Amino acid sequence: MNTVPEEFLLAGGTSITALPKVSLHDHLDGGLRPSTIIELGDAIGLDLPADDAVTLGQWFAERSNSGSLVEYLKTFDLTTAVMQTREGLVRVAREFVQDLGADGVVYGEIRWAPEQHLSRGLTLDQAVEAVQEGIEEGIDDVNQNGSGIRVGQLISAMRHTNRAFEIAELAVRHRDRGAVGFDIAGPEAGFPPSNHRRAFDYLAEHYFPATVHAGEADGLESIRSAIIDGRALRLGHGVRLAEDIVIERQDDENTYVSLGPLAQWVKDREIALETSPSSNLQTGAIAAWGDDLLDHPFDLLYQLGFRVTVNTDNRLMSATTLSRELALLADAFDYDLTDLEVFQLNAASSAFLPLEDREELADIITAGFEGS
């Protein structure tokens, strides 16, 4: 059914892979299996840089490690090329869910931009329906394998095009058929959420939640626009919010900081930060602080009480899984099982689910961690 994921362990030997996890920021076109790209690519005559899965996977990881979001996004030309038919979308979505389930994810939100999948004749609605079909097949596969998973679609609009209002209508139209939220994605700098205020107004009028990519390739003004113009309940990445935090002084035991008004607002309102550590390194999102995971402001934000969550962003491009991202953070910042549980409970609390379902999800997380 699915590939067997690499197992990641905490220092004490606990399997991170086996722990129940929540994935909030995971792109459909960034999570394909290299072998699937090759098979689907052959069927349409797509010219690929490698003809074996291992080499192709390495190519994606190497090309994505550019330090630039714009360059990073160019690798998606290949993945979206094999996702232009109903059959391609169904297969990719099904395998995507299978791979989440194999990694211990019990709830996932899959974000993708339907407007990028219309070159072979699909309509927007047909594309969403195809992905939903694949998701449901993947859920059945995971359940039959003895695990359990729940998955929703985050319908994204590309922020550099003019279709956001149309995509917002699409998302609301499918709210009872798999869609759980809205997002804008693509090049961040120069394309603020304010450009799509009409779409966000429409979503608010229909009580439909939004998360917004902000604070990745642009700074505080982008985050501010996401909150004010986009009414964002979560921030996609959001790591550059740390630019609004001033370290006043440090001693051997403590770091003393002051929060700017934007950072204070995000913290006080518990607006979740959808951080993706490996991706943030690849795209240069944390360049202001350094180029190593130890330089990532994740731990600062966590220690200050922000609602941080851990995500993969694009598993193919970062050659990663959610378990691996958690293992990397645990190794870098000496986190233990309690810390990892906090990150999962943060994600459960921030999921675009009804309150009762979020509480049930939190219970699943707690029970899984207690039994580990």
Rank of each mutant, 00 (worst) to 15 (best):
T85I: 15
V97S: 00
V70A: 10
R150D: 09
M83A: 10
F76E: 06
L69I: 12
V82P: 00
N145R: 02
A102W: 05
V131S: 05
D99S: 07
G104Y: 02
E87T: 09
Q126A: 14
H117K: 08
R150T: 03
V92T: 10
I139W: 12
G101M: 06
E95R: 13
T79N: 08
V106M: 02
H117L: 15
T80R: 15
G108Q: 11
F96L: 06
T80D: 01
W112N: 03
I139L: 15
I139Q: 12
G138P: 00
Q132K: 15
E136P: 01
T123N: 04
V82T: 02
L69Y: 04
S64Y: 03
L124T: 09
E129M: 13
A127D: 13
G134S: 04
K74S: 01
A127T: 13
I149L: 10
R120Q: 14
D103K: 08
I110T: 04
G88E: 12
D141F: 04
F76Y: 11
M83V: 10
T79P: 05
N65T: 02
G138A: 02
L100M: 08
V142Y: 08
L100F: 04
A81N: 12
T123C: 06
I110D: 03
V128Q: 13
R94W: 09
V128R: 12
R86H: 14
V105F: 02
E95D: 09
R86C: 12
V106W: 05
